[in-house]
Amino acid sequence: MSTYKSSDAFNGAKLHQWFDNTLVYILLVLVAVITVFPFLWVFFTSFKGVNDPIFSVPPQLLPSSPTVDNYLRVFTQLPMLSFYFNSLVVTLTVVVVNTLFGALAAYPLAKMKFRGRDAIFYTLLATYVVPPVLTSIPSFVLAVNVFHFYDKLASVIFPYLSGVLTIFLLRQAFAAIPDDLINAARIDGANELQIWWSILLPTIRPSLATVAIITFVDQWNNFFWPSLMLHTRANMTLQVGLVALQGAFANDARGIAAGVVMTVVPMIIFFALLQKQFIAGLTGAVKG
C-alpha cells in the first residue's frame, strides 16, 4: 500500500481513516470520562483541606494545598488496619478453600461413575437459580442459634467455603481432559488423590485461575451477608467498615472520600497488575 503514496485515492482513504480514528478517540475519551470521573473526583476530594470547598460554582476539582489530614482522621477514628486485615483473611481463606473444595468435588462429577452422581449434579444445578438473599434468613438463625459465630469473622467465611459456580466451572475443565490420561495413570498404580493432585490440577490451571479471580472479586466486595453478621468495628471487613465510616463521618465529605479511596485502591492496584487475567477470568466464565 505504501508504494502508492502519491495517489489521490490513497490520500482520500488516509484522510477518511484519520477522520474515523479521531471520531473514535473522541468517543473513547468521552466514555472514559464517564467511567473514571467519579474516582478522580473522590480521589482529589480526599486530599482537600478545610479551605478547599466541596461545593462551589464553578466547581473546584483540585485541592489548592493537598493534605493527608483526612486520611489521618479516618485512621484515628476507625480501625482501618483491622478492616484491611479482616478483608484479607476472609478473601484469601475463601479463595483457597473454595477453589480446593470445588476442585475436589468437580473431579468425580466429571470423571467417575457412581450412584447418585446425576442426582447430586442436578440438585446443585437447581440451586443455582436460587437467589442468594433467600438463604440469608435461615443462615442468620443458624449463625445466632447454632454456630454462635454471629459478629465473628468465621460467620462470613464458612458459608462461602464451597460454591456451585466453582464446581460447575471446574467440572467443565475436568471433563475436557481425555480419559486415557487418567487411565494410564491408574495403570501405573497412582491412586485417585495422586491423579487429581499431580496430573489433573496442573492441566486445569487456567480454570483454577478463573475461579480464584471470580471468588476474589466477589469476596472482597461482598457486603450483604457481612453487613448482617459483623457489628463490632474491630471485626468488620472493608465494605462493612466503609458504611460504618460513612455513618460516623456524616458531615465530613473529605473523610468519607478518604475512606472510599482506601477501600477501592487495593482492588484497582491488583486489577492493574493482573488486568489480562482479571478480564479473561471474569468474562471467561461465560463460555459454558
Binding site: V31, A32, T35, V36, P38, F39, W41, V42, T45, I54, F55, S56, V57, P58, P59, V217, W220, N221, F223, Q239, L242, V243, Q246, A253, I256, A257, G259, V260, T263, V264, M267, I268, F271, A272, Q275, F278, I279, L282
Partner: peptide, 30 residues
C-alpha cells in the same frame, strides 16, 4: 481497562462516591 474499573470497584464504595456527587452540595449540581 479504564472502562472496566467500575466493574471491580465494588458497589458500596462506588455507591458512596455517587451519593456524594449527587448530594445537594455535590459536584453534579455544581
Amino acid at each position: 481497562t479504564l472502562f472496566f474499573i467500575p466493574v471491580i470497584s465494588g458497589s458500596i464504595a462506588v455507591g458512596i462516591a455517587w451519593r456524594m456527587m449527587l448530594d445537594t452540595n455535590g459536584i453534579i449540581n455544581s
